[in-house]
């Protein structure tokens, strides 16, 4: 009975894939199924392009201080979004700031979720004392609210972009490990893992070839959720003065002094916040679409 069901499914999949669709058609299908996700992806792509071409598209050098044009309102003298208290062009700083945000976002999300994947699968596969101890250690890390743990790590390591990334990665690892482990536990019980062991495959091979591919869905879901979270956490820490340091353009950092000037020059406070919100919004929409597609429990709802 089981065999026939799966055969029918593969046939159906095959028929669906068979006629090759033009990429425009694929894009159309996707945007009909996941309109918000495609919108999110568009924001993310725009950000990637801006970051990659920052030196071409920025009207000014983001570090250059124009003392004749401090706190100039948007639109004057080709300062499209105005300047900050040092006369630095806000638009250029926003464009270069997307590099910082993307770097922190991708590095933290990928490293954090991959470390979680390794720990989660290993914990489920080996079980026993190793699993027990690892779970207690992860419990300890999970007992801290995200920002508190990040704050404590930054307090230890000091500010700076590398330390901020470590501070953000650390709380991500146990979160991902927990989710991956619970999925991997179910997979360990499936006979093909026993079969692989009976065939004398090494632990590394069973983990990499038989377990890891089957927990890709939760792994990718966690990874995409972390992208937005990492950008937000970096902005918060930089805002507190504990993150990325001047003069590196970073959105959270641009808001640090904003409260001193925003009464007379609101643009100093508005645009960096819009940039943070928009990018996290894009990453979250994209992440949601990924989850809807990958999580069979939620599919077609």
């Amino acid at each position: 009975m089981m065999v026939t069901v799966s055969e029918v499914q593969t046939e159906a999949d095959f028929e669906e894939v068979a006629p090759k669709k033009a990429w425009t058609q694929v894009a159309m299908d996707l945007s009909r199924k996941q309109p918000l996700g495609v919108f999110g992806l568009a924001i993310v792509l725009a950000m990637v392009v801006a970051a990659a071409l920052a030196n071409v598209v920025s009207p000014f050098n983001p570090l250059q201080e124009h003392f004749d044009a401090m706190l100039v309102p948007p639109g004057t003298d080709s300062y499209l979004l105005g300047t900050d208290e040092f006369g630095r062009d806000i638009l250029s700083r926003l464009i270069y700031g997307s590099r910082t945000a993307l770097l922190v976002g991708f590095v933290c999300a990928i490293v954090g979720s991959t470390a979680g994947l390794v720990l989660g699968v290993a914990s489920a596969y080996f079980g026993g004392l190793f699993d027990l101890i690892l779970q207690r250690v992860l419990d300890v890390f999970m007992a801290f609210p995200l920002i508190i743990l990040a704050l404590a790590v930054v307090a230890t390591l000091g500010p700076g972009i590398e330390n901020v990334m470590i501070a953000i990665i650390l709380p991500f690892v146990p979160q991902c490990a927990r989710v991956v482990r619970s999925n991997a536990l179910a997979i360990r019980e499936i006979p093909y893992v026993d079969a692989a062991r009976a065939l004398g495959f090494s632990n590394a091979r069973i983990i990499l070839r038989h377990m890891v591919p089957n927990v890709m869905a939760p792994y990718l879901i966690m990874l995409t959720t972390f992208l937005g979270q990492a950008i937000l956490l970096e902005a918060s820490l930089s805002f507190l003065g504990l993150g990325v340091q001047d003069p590196i353009p970073a959105w959270g950092l641009m808001l640090t002094n904003a409260s001193e000037f925003f009464e007379g020059s609101p643009w100093v406070a508005i645009y960096p916040g819009v940039a943070i919100s928009l990018s996290v919004f894009g990453f979250n929409l994209f992440g949601d679409a990924v989850r809807d597609t990958l999580d069979p429990k939620l599919r077609s709802r």
């Binding site: 937000l232 918060s236 805002f239 943070i276 919100s277 928009l278 996290v280 979250n284």
Partner: peptide, 10 residues
């Protein structure tokens, strides 16, 4: 989703 994206300090 906007609520999750907008930093509360901003």
């Amino acid at each position: 989703i906007a609520g999750i994206a907008i930093p509360s300090f901003w």
